[in-house]
């Protein structure tokens, strides 16, 4: 193997990603939006103009002004500050949920596909059992019996979501393991861990990225829908879906109050889907 200096790797990968964005400008837009949103989410405590939870009944349903750029909601809370604070709730939580699910699903899928035999059968039957219920129904069941709340519903989603990743990774692993280069690597003395790390993970990476990008978007939609229904984030939390549900009774006199949170969800999910679509186009020549 040739040795690569760290700077070389950085410039190379920077160049590669720039080339990718040039080839798929749509994905570039998606990445740009996602980067901005992530930045807002990580800096949200310093970006909020006003306290997002401060209730001032004297200031309710104010029109946009310098102090409140998007106006105030039915409890006099600054809408833009709530939106910014909600970035962390909605996007941050979906991101974390997806990360956890991937960290569970990918190793299990690799293990099942690589080890085959009993372990594979056991893991896949487990997946069959857990995947029998749609995640939304499970979330409703959990919220219904154990009480509404973001932690409960996220747990319910995670219980089902890992299966998709495990199945995807297992399928790729099974088909790759039949190929000659893996056999050659085994003959050359590579151990299981080395094969997984050097060969299988690389094969898995791009389909995984496509799935994960779309999945973050889907999770955002799911979490905000559950919060809208009152099963997820509870008031006064500035979660976007919950904000929409708060603004619902006032939409005739103050439609902005429900328009902004929905627009935020739309933009973020759109960014995720743009990235996923762009990746898919780059990987899969057939769909072009």
């Amino acid at each position: 193997m040739k040795a690569e200096s760290p700077t070389n790797v950085v410039t190379q990968s920077a160049y590669a990603s720039w080339r990718t964005i040039r080839r798929s400008p749509v994905m570039g837009i998606g990445i740009g939006i996602a980067a901005i949103i992530l930045l807002i989410a990580s800096l949200s405590p310093w970006l909020t103009l006003n306290d997002p939870l401060l209730i001032q009944m004297s200031q309710r349903l104010r029109a946009p002004s310098l102090e409140y750029p998007l106006g105030t909601d039915h409890m006099g809370r600054c809408i833009i500050s709530r939106l910014v604070a909600g970035t962390r709730q909605t996007v941050g939580l979906s991101f974390c949920a997806s990360a956890v699910v991937i960290l569970i699903g990918v190793p299990l899928g690799l293990l099942a596909g690589y080890a085959k035999g009993y372990l594979d059968a056991l893991l896949m039957r487990l997946a069959d059992a857990a995947g029998a219920l749609p995640e939304f129904l499970l979330a409703i069941a959990v919220a219904g019996f154990l009480g509404p709340g973001l932690v409960n519903t996220l747990f319910a989603i995670a219980c089902v979501k890992w299966i998709g990743y495990a199945r995807l990774v297992r399928g790729i692993t099974l088909s790759e393991c039949k190929k000659d280069y893996i056999h050659a690597s085994i003959v050359a003395g590579s151990g299981g861990w080395r094969i997984i790390r050097r060969h299988l993970l690389r094969q898995v990476a791009s389909p995984l990225a496509i799935m994960a990008a779309a999945d973050v978007g889907k999770t955002i939609l799911l979490i905000s829908a559950l919060s809208y229904l009152g099963l997820g984030a509870q008031p006064p939390s500035p979660e976007w879906g919950a904000m929409l549900s708060d603004g619902r009774p006032y939409f005739q006199i103050a439609p902005e109050q429900m328009i902004y949170p929905g627009l935020c969800i739309l933009i973020v999910v759109l960014a995720c889907n743009l990235i996923s679509d762009g990746l898919r186009d780059l990987m899969d020549v057939r769909s072009r």
């Binding site: 978007g217 939609l221 905000s224 829908a225 809208y228 879906g241 929409l244 549900s245 429900m258 949170p261 929905g262 969800i265 739309l266 999910v269 759109l270 995720c272 889907n273």
Partner: peptide, 8 residues
């Protein structure tokens, strides 16, 4: 369609 929240 894939990105818009249905309730919105």
């Amino acid at each position: 369609g894939a990105s818009i929240p249905s309730f919105w």
